[in-house]
Simulated assay, not measured.
Amino acid sequence: MAQDSVTSAPLLAARLRGGEPALIPTDTLPALAATPEHAQQLWALKRRPADKPLILMGADLEPLQEALGLAWRQEWLAMASVAWPGALTLVLPARGPAVESLNPGATSLGLRIPACAVTRELLRLSGPLATTSANVSGSPAATTAAAAAACFPGVPLLGPLPWPEAGGLASTVLAWSDSGAWQVLRAGAYLPPGLTP
Results as ranks from 00 to 15, higher is better:
4 D>S: 15
9 A>L: 05
10 P>A: 08
10 P>I: 10
10 P>S: 08
16 L>T: 06
16 L>C: 08
19 G>N: 08
20 E>T: 07
20 E>G: 04
20 E>A: 12
21 P>C: 07
23 L>C: 13
25 P>E: 03
25 P>C: 12
27 D>H: 03
27 D>S: 10
28 T>Y: 08
28 T>F: 04
29 L>D: 03
29 L>Y: 01
30 P>I: 10
30 P>G: 02
33 A>S: 05
34 A>H: 03
34 A>E: 11
34 A>K: 00
38 H>M: 01
38 H>I: 01
39 A>W: 01
40 Q>C: 01
40 Q>R: 15
42 L>K: 01
43 W>N: 06
44 A>I: 14
45 L>G: 11
47 R>I: 03
47 R>H: 10
48 R>L: 02
49 P>N: 12
51 D>G: 05
53 P>C: 11
55 I>W: 00
55 I>H: 05
58 G>M: 07
58 G>S: 09
59 A>K: 01
60 D>H: 15
60 D>P: 02
64 L>F: 04
64 L>W: 09
65 Q>A: 12
68 L>W: 01
70 L>V: 11
72 W>K: 08
75 E>I: 14
76 W>F: 11
77 L>C: 14
78 A>N: 13
81 S>A: 15
82 V>G: 00
83 A>W: 00
83 A>C: 15
85 P>E: 11
86 G>C: 09
87 A>T: 02
88 L>Y: 00
90 L>H: 04
92 L>A: 10
94 A>R: 10
96 G>E: 07
96 G>I: 14
98 A>F: 06
98 A>I: 03
99 V>A: 07
100 E>K: 06
100 E>I: 06
104 P>I: 06
106 A>D: 11
106 A>T: 01
107 T>P: 00
107 T>K: 15
111 L>V: 10
114 P>C: 07
115 A>N: 15
115 A>D: 14
119 T>S: 15
119 T>D: 07
119 T>C: 13
121 E>F: 00
122 L>M: 03
124 R>M: 13
124 R>I: 00
124 R>S: 14
124 R>H: 11
125 L>W: 06
126 S>L: 15
126 S>D: 06
127 G>R: 13
127 G>H: 05
129 L>K: 04
130 A>Q: 04
132 T>A: 05
133 S>M: 13
133 S>I: 13
135 N>F: 14
135 N>Q: 07
136 V>C: 06
137 S>G: 08
138 G>E: 09
138 G>P: 05
138 G>M: 11
140 P>M: 15
141 A>M: 04
141 A>H: 11
142 A>F: 10
145 A>C: 11
146 A>V: 02
148 A>F: 15
148 A>G: 07
153 P>Y: 07
154 G>V: 12
154 G>M: 12
154 G>P: 00
155 V>R: 13
156 P>R: 10
158 L>C: 12
158 L>V: 03
158 L>N: 01
159 G>L: 13
162 P>E: 07
165 E>S: 11
166 A>T: 03
166 A>R: 05
167 G>E: 08
168 G>S: 10
171 S>K: 02
176 W>R: 14
177 S>T: 15
177 S>P: 09
180 G>L: 12
181 A>V: 00
184 V>R: 08
185 L>R: 13
186 R>M: 10
187 A>L: 13
188 G>R: 00
189 A>L: 07
190 Y>E: 10
190 Y>G: 04
192 P>G: 04
193 P>L: 06
193 P>H: 08
194 G>A: 05
194 G>F: 03
195 L>D: 03
196 T>M: 09
